[in-house]
């Protein structure tokens, strides 16, 4: 008997009576507000930012003002120039040289302030979501979903993406009684630009 078969056999023998443990219906709980304000509050709670346009701003001028020292601004979207295109980054390692990555997210979750990215948005260069110094995410209000439950039920991306990541603010780490450190293992800042 293969180990797989023996594990399954033990599981069948030992499992609690299935009749007494029926699979509950899919839970869709909680606040159903899929609004922009809720999203912004949640994002800022985890250290994320909103890139607010000033009078006459374009995304390019807003980025230049927010990141005045940025040398390599990498674009993963057709409607923004940048200094380099993500398709032209030759290897996953090279993504580390990027100061600012501009990418479009297919949806956000209001409850969590999270944005979703997959290989479809990252041109299969998934390391870019981690190694870039700063990330600017273009998001549309109409692509907000209310909460974690509605996200998994409604969004087709979870069934198609090989690699899908929900990003919420900059990377952060803090152990028990430790200090909160932002940007240690991933992006140092995450800003959302509404379109």
């Amino acid at each position: 008997m293969s180990s797989r078969d023996s594990i399954l056999a033990t599981l069948r023998a030992n499992r609690p009576d299935p009749a007494a443990h029926e699979l509950p219906p899919v839970a869709v709980l909680g606040d159903m507000d899929a609004g922009k304000a809720r999203f912004e509050d949640a994002l800022q709670l985890l250290g994320g930012q909103i890139l607010l346009p000033q009078e006459g701003d374009t995304l390019a001028t807003a980025i230049a003002r927010r990141f005045p020292d940025a040398k390599i601004i990498c674009s993963a979207v057709p409607d923004f120039e940048g200094t380099i295109r993500l398709e032209d980054v030759a290897s996953p390692q090279q993504a580390a040289a990027t100061d600012v990555l501009v990418v479009r997210s297919p949806f956000g979750i209001s409850e969590m302030g999270s944005i979703f990215l997959s290989e479809a948005q990252l041109n299969s260069l998934n390391s870019a979501a981690h190694l870039t110094q700063h990330i600017v995410v273009i998001l549309s209000e109409k692509n907000l979903t209310a909460n974690m439950h509605t996200a998994y039920v409604e969004r087709p991306e979870f069934h198609t993406a090989r690699y899908g990541v929900l990003m919420t603010g900059p990377s952060a780490t803090a152990d028990i009684q430790g200090v909160l450190i932002r940007g240690a293992q991933g992006v140092r800042s995450l800003s959302v630009w509404w379109e």
């Binding site: 998934n126 974690m148 069934h159 090989r162 690699y163 990377s171 991933g186």
Partner: peptide, 30 residues
Amino acid sequence: ADMGVFIRLLSRSALGSPITQYTTHFRGPQ
């Protein structure tokens, strides 16, 4: 669809934050 329940519970009970900064889903190889 059950993932939503667990993602919600995990970080709240661990850190008191709504979600971890990177929540990654691997469905297949790159």
